[in-house]
């Protein structure tokens, strides 16, 4: 140490200013290292997709991939719509519509599960709300569960013809993604 053994005063203003300014810069520089893990531009560009509905006949379903997740699009029959409409609200384990196009507190009536009152077309994110398996029911011959909609084989969740949970461990109705009708036979998801 230099001649005077006095401990240098660390609370010097200049030092504090320099250290805090460096710390702020250091912290800001970390952001690129974190943000680089977020979905990149190529992933985001696929965030919205357009689907042509015209080839799907009544009673048929298709599964498409949207952001790496399956989306179920079902052209419902009149019978299915009637069945879904006939369900009493009290019988629903999850009373909320879970429709990305509506407010969060909308009730899970059948009309709230579709877009623009267009009851023929049911669009769902095909992921069981329990632990993320993909429910059965899209293909002819699949088990559709006790309520004629979808059935998740992982832990036995039953969904009805409006994709609402009716029985089993799943806590919520299947999600309806944000989408819009670009024309009568074309929708844009996302």
């Amino acid at each position: 140490m230099a001649q005077k053994p006095t401990e240098p005063n660390r609370r010097d203003f200049m030092t504090i200013a320099a250290v805090s300014f460096a710390a702020v810069g250091g912290a800001a520089s970390l952001w690129p290292f974190i943000d680089q893990m977020n979905p990149d531009a190529s992933a985001l560009s696929l965030a919205t997709i357009e689907v042509d509905l015209s080839p799907i006949e009544e009673g048929q379903s298709i599964t498409i991939s949207w952001r790496g997740k399956p989306v179920f699009i079902r052209h419902r029959t009149g019978k299915e719509i009637e069945e879904a409409k006939g369900v009493k609200m009290a019988d629903l384990p999850d009373p909320d519509a879970r429709n990305g196009n509506l407010k969060d507190d909308a009730p899970a009536t059948d009309i709230n599960r579709v877009k623009d009152k267009n009851e023929k077309w049911l669009v769902l994110v095909g992921i069981c709300t329990h632990l993320g398996c993909i429910p059965k029911g899209q293909r002819i011959g699949d088990a559709k569960g006790e309520y004629g909609g979808w059935f998740c084989p992982c832990h036995g969740s039953h969904y009805d013809t409006a994709g609402r949970i009716r029985k089993g461990p799943a806590p919520r109705n299947l999600d309806v993604p944000t989408f819009e009708f670009v024309s009568d036979t074309k929708i844009k998801i996302g």
Partner: peptide
């Protein structure tokens, strides 16, 4: 530039304690 300026001033301040 700002940080270098601050560090330079801090350095001068600290080293000025070394009196002989």
């Amino acid at each position: 530039l700002l940080l270098s300026g601050l560090l330079y001033l801090a350095k001068r301040r600290i080293w000025s304690r070394l009196k002989h």
